[in-house]
Design a protein around this nucleic acid. Structure first.
Lengths: 121, 121
DNA sequence: TCATTACATCATGATGTAATGATACGTTCC
DNA sequence: GGAACGTATCATTACATCATGATGTAATGA
């Protein structure tokens, strides 16, 4: 009787969050908030190798978070929806609020996370 | 250059999204929208085994998404913040909008999602 | 055509993570 | 005390995923 959230919807939500659950992809999305960028530009901006960025962009594009447009040899990527910014902002607010808890969460690998100095600015 | 967002903050955001990037955990959070529940109740509700649910709950608790309170032999879990519902709702809206794209996203495994009888409202 | 540039894809290795069964811990009741 | 119950933890296994280097593909220009 209590059927309302289908497992398919849960899987979709999980996929969406999974697309956002990687620092590299979040950095890419942040960089795209200022406007469209090319792959090489993004790679230089976030300090990752080109194939790696290309792979992450494919992920983001397939999940509908970014869209691409080829112009000559270049491929310009941009955020596909302003809602993404809203989602990131809300997550940012939550992180600021539960920062201590999230930071204390040792369940997931601490990828190169130096030290938090309460800098939530 | 000039990374607008520090890598530490990106890591925190990624952790938060990672906590939300699993169908089982989303099912648990959905079940908790109606109010506090015990571990066994949750396990029966989402169709997962008790140790598995307990493990996911530990994850969610460590990340500050749920809080627990022991009453006798039982431990009641509840959402720690109403913001979580907001975040899930926004994600839901986005999923509905980019559903086609997310469906087509074959980059991540379509884990056999647990059978859920979540109640929407 | 050939070379160069920009990007995508493939294969691989290292690491992370979810699910399971067994077991330990804590509480209640006899 | 001892048994039953609810929950947490451990070790194992299977799988997922990130990053890298090598290679492939498309587009521009000489």
């Amino acid at each position: 009787m209590t059927l309302a959230v289908s497992s398919e919807l849960l899987a979709l939500r999980a996929k969406l969050f999974r697309g956002l659950a990687d620092p590299s992809r979040l950095a890419i999305l942040e960089a795209l908030r200022d406007g469209p960028r090319t792959v090489g530009d993004l790679a230089a901006h976030v300090g990752l190798q080109q194939p790696n960025v290309s792979n992450h962009l494919s992920c983001l594009r397939e999940c509908g978070l970014v869209s691409s447009a080829q112009q000559g040899r270049y491929v310009h990527y941009r955020l596909s929806d302003g809602r993404i910014t809203t989602l990131l902002g809300l997550a940012d607010t939550m992180v600021a609020e539960v920062a201590r808890g999230v930071y204390a969460c040792t369940r997931y690998a601490e990828t190169d996370t130096p030290q938090v100095e309460g800098s939530l600015s």
